[in-house]
């Protein structure tokens, strides 16, 4: 069975006037099913660009990217949108919930675009919210919830289409230490007990410590790729 993500020689170059800025200078990386990988690095290291390309929000300048064995370069924009809705889950630093929209409807959103019939959406959304332990918040609006609660809603939203990979971009960046730990524990549990593949982008070592493998980026290259001995066991 092919890896969820396999990139070879991935480059991303942004033109800037006559010059160009190399965000990724040839990255090789594979993510197998069931992995929990943390991508670390200072700002400007290319970790966010890497996540955007893996998340199909952006295209690489050169190199190959196979997602579940398929060459992403051959995907049209609509194909990429369809993969995002059916095979990927996103969790952002700022939660990105729709305002004035109930938690339940927010969780249902990816299913709207994946074409899941309305009757099924509610059941699936409630089931995932139950797993995260936030079923009681179903009727709450985002502005009635704490940051931790909103991020859990966002995590439930990323789960509804049973994605092959969850991409979490600084998911604890806006949370306090205790809440951060709770959210990371949730990711750990989802990975450990439900075999969900997770790629986490962070610059905080405490947060990265929850992952089973830590990849560090610097200046567009992978500096280190080591198993987290503590957790990989």
């Amino acid at each position: 069975m092919s890896d969820v993500v396999e990139v070879r020689g991935l480059r991303k170059v942004y033109p800037m006037g006559d010059d160009e800025v190399v965000a990724l200078g040839g990255v090789d990386l594979s993510i197998a099913k069931g992995e929990f990988i943390a991508v670390m690095g200072p700002s400007g290291s290319g970790k966010s660009t890497f996540m955007q390309i893996v998340g199909m929000l952006d295209r690489a300048t050169a190199g190959t990217y196979l997602f579940e064995g398929n060459d992403v370069a051959k995907f049209s924009d609509d194909d990429r949108a369809d993969v995002r809705s059916r095979r990927l889950g996103f969790v952002f630093q700022s939660y990105n919930l729709l305002p004035r929209t109930s938690a339940l409807e927010n969780v249902e959103l990816p299913m709207v675009y994946a074409g899941v019939p309305p009757e099924q959406r509610r059941d699936i959304a409630l089931e995932k919210m139950d797993i995260i332990g936030i079923k009681a918040l179903a009727d709450h609006m985002p502005n009635q919830m704490s940051g931790g609660q909103q991020q859990r809603i966002a995590i439930a939203r990323s789960l509804v289409n049973d994605p092959a990979l969850i991409l979490a971009d600084e998911p604890t960046g806006a949370l306090d230490t205790k809440t951060s730990r709770d959210v990371m524990r949730l990711f750990s549990d989802l990975n450990a007990h439900r075999n969900i593949t997770i790629m986490l982008v962070t610059h905080e070592p405490d947060v990265a410590a929850f992952a089973k493998r830590i990849v560090t980026f610097r200046d567009g290259h992978i500096l280190s790729d080591i198993p987290n001995v503590e957790r990989a066991a």
């Binding site: 924009d77 609509d78 949108a81 995002r84 809705s85 990105n96 990816p110 675009y113």
Partner: peptide, 16 residues
């Protein structure tokens, strides 16, 4: 704008 970005991230096509 952010709502549109999110909708696209979770799978909305440009046409949608």
């Amino acid at each position: 704008t952010r709502e549109i970005g999110l909708r696209m991230a979770v799978g909305a096509r440009a046409r949608t």
